[in-house]
Design a protein around this nucleic acid. Structure first.
Lengths: 340, 340
DNA sequence: AATATTTACGCAATCGTTGTCGGCAACGTT
DNA sequence: AACGTTGCCGACAACGATTGCGTAAATATT
């Protein structure tokens, strides 16, 4: 890993490093002939400026940190795809961290990011996160932060989210219009913004159609398979069974589908099933799966753009916005109207 | 982003930066009392060593670069998950790059990585990559490189791969034992190592069971949806139709499934379908999907471990190994034996 | 008491690069 | 001839941290 430095060029040409530096940047006060020679030599030695030295000098790293609960989750990997594409085009690198839905890991990740001197942070909160002092501290020190998908109201900054309320409303209304009356809602962690928004949408749709809200039909669960199965079991062992389940994540939807199949509960005849998912194979599932789809890629792109704008503009009066992207309801067989 | 430096501590305590530095690292030649004061002050100022300054001095970044074709692909996101977990535990950060299956992008990514001074590179080659001069150059300069999944024989270094030959052999044999005789193989780019290995396994299984190898049953395709559909169309419009298709990627398997369903071709009665996939929802597909599964997470972990061992050990006599991890054949309905 | 050793700290160089300053020529201007 | 201007370039400091070397004072040794 011996890489030529500006000094090597200077030594080879018997010039000072200042002159070489200026020649490389095309400064007007360098003789064109000297420039030519320097550039030639740089080419020959395959000179590449050392970004670490620049970072030290300019006090910035041209890297942004991304903290997600799990990379290995279609929604987040699609979002990261969007983030990477924007960052790449604007000359930034993307450093990835996973919180694994753990608050403690998230805190440690944030500490790493801070000491790493990334230029900005994109984050989607872990399911365990209930307070955000770790982010507040970072933010108060001037670190640009943009939330996507899962945010906290306690920090005033840009947020990019799906229209969870409308998505849940549309999905629930679709279930109602399909003739379902006992609609369960399998929610994620009650502390997450997305959870609250989706439950609001769910409730609003029920209310609009005069269906009473039944607390027993709303279940929260974390992201472990065990917990999901336990909660689904609970739901299915109540005196009044739901005739539809609206789940809020890829994994939850799949866990439901699996359990319902195992129990030979017919979908959608006995139970309609729908999810807030980003699975590309939804249409190939059995039955094909009705989903409220979030624009994950676009969310990542928009969040990255907002972040890099913050990073690059020194405007001390940022007008923070919350970008709300529309969801899309794709209706398939798992919520088909049963005509019998 | 005003972060306290060692100078701030020195100034506050009226000490030299050398003393502060040594006190922080617990050097024996610093008075215990002085150490106490320094540590206290560092705590108060929330001092964090600047990794960029360290990088410059030590000529290393404590970051590794990862180049994958697409993050948004279950196999690679699972592998990155494994990479991140190992890197995290060993104090390294992970910088992500996507080649989008493009050779040109891959070259640019490698250039970025090189000038970025990452300490090592994990790479899975793009589908377009036919020569690896860009990597050779990097490798010859001493940059530790470890391949995972898709490697090149032209570079002598660690490789972590699935046992593609055996996986393809097992899968093909399973199809044969299910009564299939006209087994097509939908391969990826012919330049990829995994493609060659899998075709070998496929051929070996055919040979073992006395089934003639038919060139028309082996089709290559790149990673675009259009190309996949074109190739599948070609396969299905031949005079002799296959009675089984063995696909080699998630996307290809899904494209196949979709087209076969659209054409009302019954699976597995008319056509068995099997893939080299890492979809977690394989069992929930319709029909449930037989797959040769690669240990993606473990591949990422092993590759990261090998890379970090190289990075940290200055042993100038590395014995390069090719780690071959076993695949697992999960038999489901899409290749069920039809008894009629 | 004179010398040797230990303790505890500061100075300055270093990593690669850039910005500030200054300087030395070779001009042009009066 | 004396002065100002311009073109072109080098020395030095700085970014944050570490480290080899030097050294004063305190202590130990003879």
């Amino acid at each position: 890993m011996e890489i030529a430095t500006i000094k090597d060029i200077a030594k080879a040409l018997n010039l000072s490093t200042s002159t070489v530096s200026r020649a490389l940047r095309g400064s007007y006060e360098i003789n064109p002939e000297t420039k030519r020679i320097v550039l030639e030599c740089a080419e020959k030695l395959n000179y590449r400026p050392n970004p670490i030295a620049l970072s030290l000098k300019e006090n910035r790293s041209r890297a942004i940190g991304v903290v997600v609960p799990e990379i290995d989750n279609p929604f987040f990997s699609q979002a990261i795809n969007g983030i990477e594409s924007i960052a790449y085009n604007r000359g930034y690198h993307v450093v990835i961290f996973q919180s694994h839905e753990s608050y403690d890991r998230e805190v440690v990740n944030i500490q790493h990011l801070a000491s790493r001197r990334v230029d900005g942070v994109l984050i989607s909160l872990s399911g365990q996160t209930t307070h955000v002092e770790h982010l507040k501290e970072l933010h108060s020190k001037g670190m640009p932060i943009v939330f996507f998908d899962r945010f906290s109201d306690e920090i005033n900054t840009h947020k990019v989210v799906a229209d969870n309320y409308q998505g849940a409303f549309d999905g629930t209304e679709h279930l109602i219009k399909s003739g379902k009356k006992y609609i369960a809602h399998l929610a994620a962690s009650p502390t997450l913004s997305i959870t609250r928004e989706r439950i609001s949408g769910y409730q609003a749709a029920l209310e609009k159609h005069g269906i009473p809200y039944n607390e027993d039909f709303v279940k929260y669960c974390n992201f472990s398979i065990e917990d999901m199965e336990k909660v689904i079991d609970e739901l299915l062992s109540q005196p009044i069974l739901p005739d539809a389940i609206f789940t809020v994540s890829d994994r939850l939807a799949m866990a439901c589908l699996k359990i319902l199949k195992k129990r030979n509960i017919r979908i959608p005849e006995d139970m309609a099933l729908m999810g807030f998912t980003n699975l590309k194979v939804a249409e190939l599932l059995s039955p094909s799966f009705t989903s409220v789809i979030q624009p994950a890629l676009e969310m990542g792109q928009r969040a990255a753009e907002l972040l890099l704008d913050m990073v690059e503009k020194k405007s001390k009066n940022p007008v923070y916005q919350t970008v709300k992207l529309p969801t899309e309801l794709i209706i398939r067989d798992s919520t088909k109207i049963v005509t019998d």
